[in-house]
Write a protein that binds this DNA or RNA. Sequence first.
DNA 1: TTTAACTTTCAAAACAATTTGAAAGTTTAT
DNA 2: ATAAACTTTCAAATTGTTTTGAAAGTTAAA
Lengths: 168, 168
Amino acid sequence: MQLPEAKGKFIEAWGKLGSEWGINRTMAQVHALLLVSPNELTTEEIMEELKISRGNANMTLRDLISWGLVEKQHKAGERKEYFYADKDTWNIARQVAKERRKRELDPIIKILDELSKVEGDSKDEAFKTFNKSVTDINKLAKNVDKTLETMLKAEENWFWKSIFKMFK
Amino acid sequence: MQLPEAKGKFIEAWGKLGSEWGINRTMAQVHALLLVSPNELTTEEIMEELKISRGNANMTLRDLISWGLVEKQHKAGERKEYFYADKDTWNIARQVAKERRKRELDPIIKILDELSKVEGDSKDEAFKTFNKSVTDINKLAKNVDKTLETMLKAEENWFWKSIFKMFK
DNA sequence: TTTAACTTTCAAAACAATTTGAAAGTTTAT
DNA sequence: ATAAACTTTCAAATTGTTTTGAAAGTTAAA
């Protein structure tokens, strides 16, 4: 297999994976393209390579920036904007975990907290089951949340540091 | 807030979370409904409560069963089938991790392995970057895979056992 | 300030995923 | 064997998501 073909396969696979995890396919593909590009690319080049429209490229790049996965670069004397992806796998994972925590975990914990407060007849099976499921899930969610917080903010934490080593 | 309202909110929230993580909304909602139901429900009851069609209910329940989250029950002397969800949060998490590993992680590792083999000119920046990104991601994916395998098969493993305790 | 290079927006179009419902299939009791 | 109770299937319809592209907006050099 030659590089261009391999590149295409990588972009496709990354796109598919993204879409299976609730990330827009094009966004994952643009990210993949930037990941395998040694230097920054312009909107034009991205449009060209992935055969997507200007509007799509623009919005997708904005999203990637808001996810902290891509940065705008600004070359002296040039009008065009260049885009560049952080290529450190660990940073990518951290960044995705951080964003999803903020965007999804936090809101659902808020709801679960409310639902945990619902009171009812402790002899009512329907209530008992509701309550048990909700409080159990809430507990797990909070543990995940706390764990992520620790992991994300502290490489200085000896415990997580040793866990991270296993993954690098 | 009263129980029926709370139930509705829980179902809605679980559905939304599911869809953000690539799980069909209805499937997550049916799961949620079964999670808060003390006893098994029939297809009819599920259709009724969630206002979905028979076909949809049927397919969704099959999916949930294939994910190992729901079981069919068969009451003596009755023709109808009843459905029941395991309510142990930890089992749910295990089951989802197990399935997604099989369905998504394994296939992408296979592709990454292939792409890692691609050879090229080590002076070519394009090749170097491609290779670095692909092998790095492959390494991380394999580590996640190994970790999940260990976690999933072994509660007997002292190390993971102590980690699990933190979450329960 | 004008112009040209470039970026952003967003309504409409294209595409993708989900859902419906009626028909076909299956099972069990009689 | 037939009927009744129930389950499954799948083509078509609906709904939801993504993409386009042209127009509007912005910026910076002249």
